[in-house]
């Protein structure tokens, strides 16, 4: 069961963390805007790169990224994050208007992927993209929250409370734990 990527948005609607494990093969008709046909598997937004994970299944050609290509794909990543946030935020608001305050938006599925959404009462939002056939990942997201986020980010006295620009989230323990956890599912 493939996990494609994972995003965390904070209560100020900013994307404070994103990570991809696997980029789904684009259908022949659509093409991505960056010159290389795929992002390098383990790319992280450049200023925050600490450790780079080794790519698992690589059915895609990985072109050596030039500086411009890196910048473009970073931009694309940011845009992706914004798009995703916009989508889930609107869907969540719509769900609340139609189903009452207690109703929650859980997931949506397209032909290419399934997006699972999880929101905590503190307005921290997780979005996980997996293959379309995946079962409910709500429990997975809950576990990520309890065992990784709270343990390694909240309880770390050295990480700030507000994670402007992702500060404090990219600590080693959180990343390692998250990586291990997700790979354990794949």
């Amino acid at each position: 069961m493939q996990v494609y990527s994972f995003y965390i948005f904070d209560r100020h609607t900013e994307c404070i963390y994103s990570k991809s494990w696997f980029t789904p093969p684009p259908p022949a008709s659509s093409s991505l805007t960056s010159p290389s046909t795929s992002r390098p598997q383990s790319q992280q937004p450049a200023p925050h790169a600490s450790s780079v994970t080794s790519p698992p299944v690589a059915s895609l050609v990985v072109a050596p990224p030039s500086a411009a290509a890196l910048k473009r794909s970073k931009q694309k990543k940011d845009d992706d994050a914004k798009l995703i946030f916009g989508t889930v935020f609107s869907l969540r608001n719509m769900v609340r208007k139609l189903g009452g305050e207690d109703d929650a938006f859980i997931a949506y599925r397209t032909g290419q992927y399934k997006l699972h959404y999880y929101e905590t009462p503190t307005n921290l939002r997780f979005a996980l993209l997996t293959e379309p056939g995946a079962l409910s990942m709500r429990n997975v997201l809950h576990q990520i929250y309890i065992n990784l986020w709270v343990e390694y980010v909240v309880k770390n006295p050295l990480s700030p409370v507000e994670h402007k620009g992702g500060e404090g989230v990219r600590n080693e323990m959180f990343e390692m734990g998250l990586d291990k956890f997700i790979r354990g599912l794949m």
Binding site: K155, N156, P157, L158, N171, E172, M173
Partner: peptide, 13 residues
């Protein structure tokens, strides 16, 4: 002390 309690949650930058 192999694992001081006070350092358990602290990761020093």
């Amino acid at each position: 002390d192999n694992e001081p309690l006070v350092n358990r949650y602290i990761s020093v930058p």
